[in-house]
Structures are given as C-alpha cells and as structure tokens.
Design a protein around this nucleic acid. Structure first.
Length: 498
RNA sequence: GGCCCCAUCGUCUAGCGGUCUAGGACGUCGCCCUUUCAAGGCGAAAACACGGGUUCGAGUCCCGUUGGGGUCACCA
C-alpha cells in the first residue's frame, strides 16, 4: 500500500452509455468498502476508446449516483489531489510510462497491421491453435523497426509478458487464483492512436491515484495475471484486488446486459438501466438495499436495512464469489416495504406528485395528502398510484360500464334498486365522512338483505369508476357529497340504458 | 475449444467438520381478516448436482465428473 493506510477505491467506468444496474452494484460495493473503512471513493472516467465515446454518459453517471446516494470524494467535477480524473487528460502519463517499459525491455513496439493480425489468427485457428498474437515483433532489431517505420507503419506498444512460470493472486473475493504464464498474451498497452488500453491505464492510474483496493467485476479475472506482471514490471506495490460477482439474467443464463433485457419468465419487465428504475417509480433507498443483498448479506437474518447499517457491517471478504441470477422480483417487495414502513404518508405524498403529473393529471395538494395514506399499503412502485388512485385527480370522470357495476349474484334491476336505495340514504346524510357513510350503508345492506360487498362494491365502482380502488367510503369522503351523488346517479342511468 | 472461476429450496441467501431432522427472505399455494385491491396474521410445499476419497463424523476439506458463468480486440 501507499504511505498512508487510507482505503481508497474507485469506480472507473467507460463513458459509453447509460449506467447499467450491474455497474451500479459494482460501484456500490467499492463505495461500501471505502465508506466502511472511512476512506475515499473516486470517480475516474476511462474515456480511452474514442470510437465508443458518448459525451452525455459522464453526466448520466453523476446524476444516477447522486440519485442512488453514492457519493464521490474525488471526480472530474469535484477535483482532488490526484487529477485529472479523465484518462483522456492523462495521456502524457501513459506515453511516458509506456516508453519507460520499452526502455527497460519490458515492452516493445509491434508494427503489425490489423489485417496481418487477422491473418495470424486465421492461420492459428486453421492449425488448431488458440487465437492470439504470435509475438513476431517481440525481438525486432533496430534495422527491422526502421524498415517498418519507413513503410509508414504506426506501431502499438505490447507488453513482454513472462513466458514461463506462474502467477498466484489472492483475491479478496475470489480467493486463491493461479495462472500459467505460458497461457498469457503480449497484450497491447498503447494503441496506435497514442491512447492507452485499459490494461496500461488502470495500472498507472491506480498507482498514481494511490488506490488501495481495486474493485471490479470478475469479467476482469482473465486479464488479472497480466496486470500483476505489469505492476511488477513497474516495480510498484500492488493494490488489493477484489473481483466482484456479476449479475446474470433472471433465468441464470448469461450475464445481464441491456441487450438481454426484456421480460422475465413471469412476464415482468426486466429493468437494467438505473434511470429506468427511477422512471419506473422505485425508491433509491430500496434499489440500494436490493443491490446490497445480492452477493452479500447483512450478517443476521435481516433483509431490510439502512445504508448506514450496511456501511457499518460491510465486509468485502464476505462477498459471495459466485455470480447471481438477477432477483428482480424481490425489488417490488422491498420497494413496497420502503413505501409503507419507511416513510410517513406526508413524505409519500411528496413522492407521488411526480408520477401523477407525468400521467397528465392535475394534482391538488390537499387531495394528495388525504389520498396518500389510502394508497400507502397498496402500491409497490410510486407509479402504481396512477392506476389505483389517478381518478381522484382526473378533471373528467370516466364512469364504469354496466358490466363492471353489476356485483356478484346481482342483476341489472337489483343493482339499480340498490343504488337508488343507497342514493336516498346518502341524500339525507348530513355527515359525509367515512364512518357515517359506512354505518349508513350498513343499514342499506340490512334493509336490502344483501352482502356488504355487494353494496360497498357497487358504490365503489359507481363512484370511483374502478373495480379496484382505494376503499369506498374514504374515497367518497374525498370526492365529496355532490360529486359522489352525481356519479351514483350517472351509474343508475348507465344501468337503465343498458 | 484453451484458460479462469463458481455450484445449498424456482430465485437471493445463512451455513466457515459434530449444535443441520439444513435456517431466513422473495415468489408460489392454503387458511384467517376483509367493501375491491393491498397490507397484516398463521401455515404448507420447496435445496445441500453426482461419484470417489480424507475423517470417529462432511452441506462444510480434497479429487474427479457434470452443469453454469466469464474471458480469449489497437473495447472497457
């Protein structure tokens, strides 16, 4: 480690698009590790691939992490003592150290063209050999190099990996891993455009930025031995490596990617971008709690916990090395828990305004406040409020059909009679509140010899226009006397017309 | 295919040689409550991939098989 014992971890995304939920989890674990140790968490933008660069990507990362509550101590925006934090602004470092490796006979220039490389692979395939570079430029003479240069070829810099022996790594998550050097490749360190590859850049930056723990997804394990050799070539002290498991598709087949999004076997849409979770009405606290529970657990049998508690208990060594199928169905449950148990109705009301307005509804604050407690135990996502209780905010009431109005074991005539009877009762009622409405309708049930559900249900559909809604009397109280009576009359008219 | 990793209920997981007749959670199913839908309460079904070892004793350690995943770019 470096002079200090400070734990420093980083999230180092390539700005090629929107933030993926799997990347967010990898970042989360690195963040948890840093926060647990009271260390620092750094954002470094790995924009070394000019072809895949997406300009909006960086801002998207910033926004999504802010939403999730994952904060950085250093980043391109915040700055810090180890900047710049964009690799495209650190090119001089990579070029300098690549040259250093060449000077110390640990790397070499290779002048092969892409076509030649393709031909090599084709030949090797034909010969039954595994693909890879055959190291033909590993020991070029000065004259040979000059000849290539004269041809106008632009070289890449390749690493001279050790050809024999083995590398052993003790990964914090994966444990003991070993590789035979004979299986390694002379990977490209510096591309012909002067930009570094990930391999070179991350080692230099993690060293220069004094990163103590490299947390990344286990897709990197195959290149780990080469990275270890690079650290040794530079003579730098290695950070600890922690290769985190990846998220697999809900059916366990293949890693979760945007490409494989779509629907799970249960028909539920599989969300993979962080912004999709936000748009779908999930709470960031629930998403974090959900993610934290995959590959790691609280330590006792609790599934619901605050992020502060997770930070306190987090232990990178207890992370499960096995990849996990993405248990997306658990998020709905957890989000429901957060909605009903982790916030007041008032707070919930605040969260409900946006989805309601996005559905084109006009949200009156007073109404929202009384509706919130009614939906609190009934919604899984914030957006669910639109279907369940959107009618409270619709300027124009959409009445239900005769079919929906008619309750079980009742016919049109019976329904009309019931509604008319109820209407009479309600008209004489001077206390238009839930309890009074309830007891008044209870007498209607008795007088007509019906079931509670037949009367209450019929009124529900008449007044809310929905078969599934918030409770009948609470809803009637909110809708108000005049409008409720108007809707009941309207229902009667519909039944009579049908 | 080569290399690397992984392997407990459908899924996420607890389990770090005996306390496991394998625990929790989601989901599923049943019952209760009930004006719909939820929520809540109670309960049920549901797993140590297989085969060898090691050991007095193995879900826990070792080997193999099978299965799964990852990776083999001048992408990260």
């Amino acid at each position: 480690m470096t002079a200090s014992n400070t734990v420093r971890t980083r999230f180092a995304p390539s700005p090629t698009g929107a933030l993926h939920i799997g990347s967010a989890r990898t970042a989360l674990f690195g963040w948890l590790l840093a926060r647990h140790a009271g260390g620092q968490f750094v954002l470094r933008i790995e924009d070394t691939d000019q072809k895949r660069y997406v300009a909006e990507s960086e801002q998207e990362f910033i926004d999504m992490f802010a939403w999730l509550g994952i904060d950085f101590d250093e980043s391109p925006q915040i700055g810090g003592d180890y900047g710049p934090y964009r690799q495209s602004e650190r090119l001089d470092h990579y070029q300098k150290w690549a040259q250093w490796l060449i000077d110390h006979d640990k790397a070499y220039r290779a002048y092969d063209t892409p076509e030649e490389l393709a031909a090599i692979n084709e030949q090797r395939r034909a010969d039954g050999l595994p693909p890879g570079y055959d190291r033909r430029h590993r020991e070029l003479t000065a004259e040979q190099e000059q000849a290539f240069i004269d041809e106008g070829r632009v070289p890449v810099v390749r690493f001279k990996v050790p050809l024999t022996g083995k590398v052993v790594v003790n990964d914090l998550v994966q444990g003991h891993i070993e590789f035979d050097n004979s299986t390694l490749q002379d990977i490209v360190l510096l591309k012909s455009d002067g930009f570094p590859t990930y391999h070179l850049a991350h080692v230099i930056d993690d060293h220069l930025m004094q990163i103590s723990h490299v947390t990344r997804s286990n897709e990197w394990v195959p290149s780990l031995p080469v990275h270890v050799h690079l650290w040794h070539a530079f003579g730098w002290e290695l950070p600890q490596y922690a290769h985190l498991p990846v998220l697999l598709n809900p059916n366990g087949k293949g890693k979760l990617s945007k490409r494989h999004a779509g629907f799970s076997e249960s028909g539920k849409q599989v969300l993979v971008l962080v912004k999709e979770f936000r748009e779908a009405g999930y709470l960031p606290e629930a998403v974090i709690n959900f993610l934290t529970n995959i590959g790691w657990n609280f330590g006792d049998e609790r599934e619901v916990f605050d992020i502060e508690e997770a930070i306190e208990r987090f232990d990178i060594g207890r992370v499960n090395p096995a990849n996990s199928a993405y248990p997306i169905e658990k998020l709905d449950w957890l989000n429901g828990v957060y909605i009903r148990e982790k916030m007041s109705a008032e707070t919930l009301a605040g969260h409900l305004r946006k989805p309601l307005e996005q559905a084109g509804l006009n949200v009156d604050e007073a109404t929202l406040q009384v509706v919130a407690p009614l939906v609190q135990t009934r919604i899984k996502t914030l957006n669910d409020v639109v279907d369940l209780a959107g009618f409270f905010f619709k300027p124009d009431f959409t009445p239900a059909s005769a079919d929906d109005l008619i309750q079980r074991k009742m016919d049109t005539a019976g329904m009309i009679a019931m509604l008319q009877h109820a209407e009479q009762r309600l008209k004489t009622l001077d206390d238009w509140q839930t309890d009074a409405l309830h007891s008044a309708m209870l007498t209607v049930v008795e007088e007509l010899g019906l079931k509670n559900g037949q009367v209450f249900g019929g009124l529900r559909v008449a007044v809310t226009g929905q078969k599934v809604s918030t409770p009948t009397f609470e809803s009637m109280e909110i809708i108000g006397r005049d409008e409720s009576l108007r809707r009941i009359q309207q229902a009667i008219n519909i039944l009579q017309a049908g």
